[in-house]
Design a protein around this nucleic acid. Structure first.
Lengths: 173, 173
DNA sequence: TGTTAATTGACAGTATACTGACGATCTGGG
DNA sequence: CCCAGATCGTCAGTATACTGTCAATTAACA
C-alpha cells in the first residue's frame, strides 16, 4: 500500500520541520544576543572564542576550533578581528613554527568581565517565554541531541582531548 | 548579599547556554540536510523558498521573506541563484512596476517533487538520536518558543497577513 | 492635486559558515 | 638522515545573514 497519501507540497510542512525551527531559533538567539550586547561590539562567536581563550591560554587556532566546535576556516577571520580590536594576542610557538598561540590581552580580559552580565541576560531572554519547567526540559533535550549528533557536524566538539597537547590533563578535575 | 558567587568565567558555561546549543544544532541540521540532499544541489534556504513559491505562485520577494521569515536582503541573491538554475521565473507585475512576481518553472516543480523524500529523511535524521516521545516534546517546545519569540527576530514570520494582497484570503481553508 | 511618506528591489559593507586547495612545517618509518 | 604523510595556518570561492542606503515607484494626505 502507498503508505500515507504523501502530504501536499506546502509551506506549512516547513514550519514544523526541525531544521526550519532550529534555523529560526538560532536567528532569534543571535538577534537577542546582539541587542543585549550592543554596547560591547562583540558577536556571539567572538564571545565564545574569547571565553575559550581565557579558559585555555596559549591554545592554537585548530584546537580552539575543536573546543568551541566552530569551523577552522572561519575562525581565522574571527581571530583577526579580535586581534584588531586588541582583545587577543598571537605569539609564535617556540617548538613548532606552524603554530601561533592565542592569549587574551588586558583589554580582552576586561571586556569579558564586563560583558558577562549582558550575555546572561541574553541567554535568559531567549527562554523567557517558556515556563521554567519547560525551559529545563528543552535545554535537557537539546544538550542530549547536540551531544548525540556531535559526529554529524562538520566540526565535532572535542572539548577535552583537544587539549592534551597543552599539558592540561583531563578537563574536569 | 552578593547572590551566587558568580560562576567562574569558563568555556563550560558556554556549552550549556541556549544560544550556543541553538547554533550547534542549526549547524548540525544544515550538515545533515546537505548530506541527504547532495544529489540535488539545493540548500535548505533555497528549498524553503522554492516550496513557498510553489504554495504561493506569483508572490513577490518582500512577501516571500515574510512567509519564510528570511532576511529580505539575503533573499535577493537566493532568488538570483534559483533563477540561474532555472527553477523559478520572475515576471514584472502589471499593476505595480516595482514588483517582480515569482513562479516555479517546470524544472522547479520537478526538483521539488524529487527532493521531498530526501528532505524528509534529513528532518528525521536530525531527531533520530532521541526517543520518539522526546522528539515530540522537543518539537512542541521549540514550536512554542519560536512562536513566542517571533517578534524578537529581525524578520518576524507573517505567514498569513503577508498574503492578503494576493487575494488568497486566510491561510487554512 | 501635489508633496510627502511608505514600499520595492538592489547594493555595499560586515560577519559567519563550509569546501577545497596550498605552502610551510613537523613526524615517523625505513 | 630522507621522504611520505599528517598538521597548521591561510586563502579563494560560495552561501547565508544582517545593517544601512538608494532610486524608482506607489500610496496617502493635506
Amino acid at each position: 500500500m502507498p503508505s500515507k497519501p504523501s502530504a501536499p507540497i506546502t509551506i506549512d510542512a516547513v514550519y514544523d520541520a526541525p531544521g526550519y525551527l532550529f534555523r529560526r531559533m538560532q536567528q532569534i538567539a543571535v538577534s537577542i544576543f546582539m541587542e543585549e550586547c550592543k554596547a560591547f561590539d562583540l558577536t556571539p562567536v567572538q564571545y565564545a572564542a574569547l571565553i575559550a581563550i581565557h579558559t585555555h591560554p596559549g591554545i592554537d587556532a585548530t584546537r580552539l576550533s575543536a573546543v568551541i566546535a566552530f569551523d577552522r576556516s572561519t575562525l581565522g577571520s574571527v581571530i583577526e578581528r579580535l586581534q584588531a580590536k586588541d582583545y587577543i594576542e598571537r605569539k609564535p610557538a617556540p617548538e613548532d613554527k606552524r603554530i601561533k598561540l592565542l592569549y587574551l590581552t588586558k583589554s580582552g580580559a576586561a571586556i569579558l568581565r564586563e560583558i558577562i552580565p549582558a550575555v546572561e541576560r541574553a541567554q535568559a531572554r531567549m527562554l523567557e517565554p517558556l515556563k521554567p519547567a519547560d525551559r529545563k526540559a528543552l535545554m535537557g533535550l537539546l544538550v542530549q541531541l547536540v551531544d548525540l549528533n556531535n559526529e554529524a557536524s562538520r566540526v565535532p566538539l572535542r572539548a577535552e582531548d583537544a587539549l592534551e597537547h597543552l599539558g592540561k590533563g583531563g578537563g574536569g578535575m
